[in-house]
């Protein structure tokens, strides 16, 4: 690998550094010796067939999965099993899930306020103000006082994005954010993500939406069998894939 993790300037610019990451589930190697560096402001899209380890890799970044081996640095913090470091990193890393995972017993506003007051220790007024700002940002300020079950899937996912953004994360992770949505709702979520990308948010997105990859990604990573097969810019990957496995995958989905 062509980077030196001991170089301080390098660490400063790369908000996420992954070195020789392994994750095994029993005998299955979901992630196999992956090394990556993601720079501040980059929008990285990870694609690959199902079971290729892309979601697992993403979930390792905020330790929702505990890696079996290797090292991860996020914003200069070396992640180990120590829960204090994990919580510090999670505060800076927003995550959006395939199944939204909104808290059903709380209103939309309360969903967005909770972690701000509990984790960031903001006052109620501050948190409400921030929540309203983020709801406006994702385009549904009028839904502040309803419960998640009263929203469409697309709206729920936008609330989930607002909830993550309210924590002022330095990085946003998206784990197949549109896979559980009806086709007509995919666009509204992708638009929100596209705007985020334009605003300069550092994003790592696992998705099957090739349109988003083409329009928004600075960099696209193709994974298969737990390994990074190709790591390049989107125009190159779509027009001139180097690896036969990439070609095969693209021929199936495009």
């Amino acid at each position: 690998m062509a980077f030196n993790i001991d170089n301080k300037d390098d660490k400063k610019e790369s908000i996420i550094i992954i070195k020789n990451l392994d994750k095994h589930f029993g005998r299955v190697k979901a992630v196999n010796n992956v090394s990556l560096e993601i720079k501040t402001g980059q929008v990285v899209v990870i694609i690959g067939p199902s079971g290729s380890g892309k979601s697992t890799l993403l979930r390792c970044i905020n330790y929702l999965e505990t890696p079996s081996g290797g090292d991860i640095w996020v914003d200069g913090i070396h992640l180990t099993r120590k829960s204090k470091d994990i919580n510090t990193v999670r505060r800076e890393v927003g995550m959006v899930f395939q199944q939204f995972n909104l808290f059903p017993h709380l209103t939309v506003l309360e969903n967005i306020i909770l972690a701000q007051t509990v984790v960031r220790q903001r006052s109620q007024n501050e948190a409400v103000e921030m929540a309203r700002k983020q709801l406006a940002r994702v385009g549904i300020p009028e839904k502040a006082n309803v419960y998640p079950e009263q929203l469409s899937g697309g709206q729920q996912q936008r609330v989930a994005i607002a909830r993550a953004l309210a924590m002022n994360p330095k990085v946003m992770l998206f784990d197949e954010p549109t896979s559980a949505l009806d086709p007509e709702m995919i666009k509204e979520v992708l638009e929100v993500m596209l705007n985020l990308a334009k605003e300069g948010m550092t994003m790592v997105v696992v998705t099957h939406e090739m349109g988003f990859a083409k329009n928004a990604a600075d960099r696209i990573i193709f994974m298969d069998g737990g390994s990074v097969i190709e790591d390049t810019i989107p125009s190159e990957l779509f027009t001139d894939p180097k690896h036969s496995r990439t070609k095969m995958f693209l021929s199936k989905i495009l």
Binding site: N62, R91, N101, V118, V119
Partner: peptide, 26 residues
């Protein structure tokens, strides 16, 4: 569902905060 705990933890809550504010009320 497991997703509730994961969502709470991904927002930086520790185990007890997630239990108290997210899991137990439900």
């Amino acid at each position: 569902g497991r997703g509730q705990m994961e969502a709470a933890r991904s927002l930086g809550m520790n185990y007890f905060q997630a239990m108290r504010h997210v899991i137990l009320p439900q």
